[in-house]
Write a protein that binds this DNA or RNA. Structure first.
Length: 136
DNA sequence: GCCAACGTTGGC
DNA sequence: GCCAACGTTGGC
């Protein structure tokens, strides 16, 4: 099983929205690196849910429920972009802030810090475990 | 609100 | 194929 982190501006689509919806199609990704990551996702993979811009914190854990399939919202270039289906798995008891992540020397290599614009990124199992422990 | 980083587009 | 211009993301 692989581990991931996705970013969303809470004003656009928040963790609370996902909890309420029970499932969402993670659409609209238009970046090749992010897409390539989504294509690697398998059902059951756990995905940390990060609120960017206004909150800058990881707030919950989602689970991949359906592997990559063509993005129906891609008007042009049909078949070029993909989505996955995500379902909420559980809340973080405490949000893990970007500030906390920056302070932890074990987390200096994660793409969230090194590549601030990437919206879908892999996490090493140990990084995932560290973040999980910080949020609970 | 500003700006750095980065990706894309289009003229040459 | 290069690079300037432009648009977007996201931290500060």
């Amino acid at each position: 099983m692989q581990h991931w982190l996705v970013k969303s501006e809470p004003e656009a689509y928040s963790w609370a929205n996902l909890v309420k919806d029970g499932r969402t199609m993670w659409d609209g990704v238009r970046n090749y690196q992010a897409r390539n990551n989504m294509q690697q996702m398998q059902p059951g993979d756990l995905v940390l849910f990060y609120h960017s811009v206004s909150e800058k914190a990881i707030v919950g854990i989602a689970k991949v429920d359906k592997p990559a399939y063509p993005d129906p919202t891609a008007a042009e270039d049909k078949g070029k972009w993909v989505v996955v289906d995500l379902i909420p798995f559980r809340d973080f008891k405490e949000p893990v802030t970007l500030e906390q992540i920056k302070k932890d020397e074990r987390l200096q290599d994660i793409a969230l810090l090194r590549q601030s614009r990437l919206s879908v990124m892999p996490l090493k199992p140990e990084e995932f475990d560290i973040l999980l422990a910080m949020g609970n």
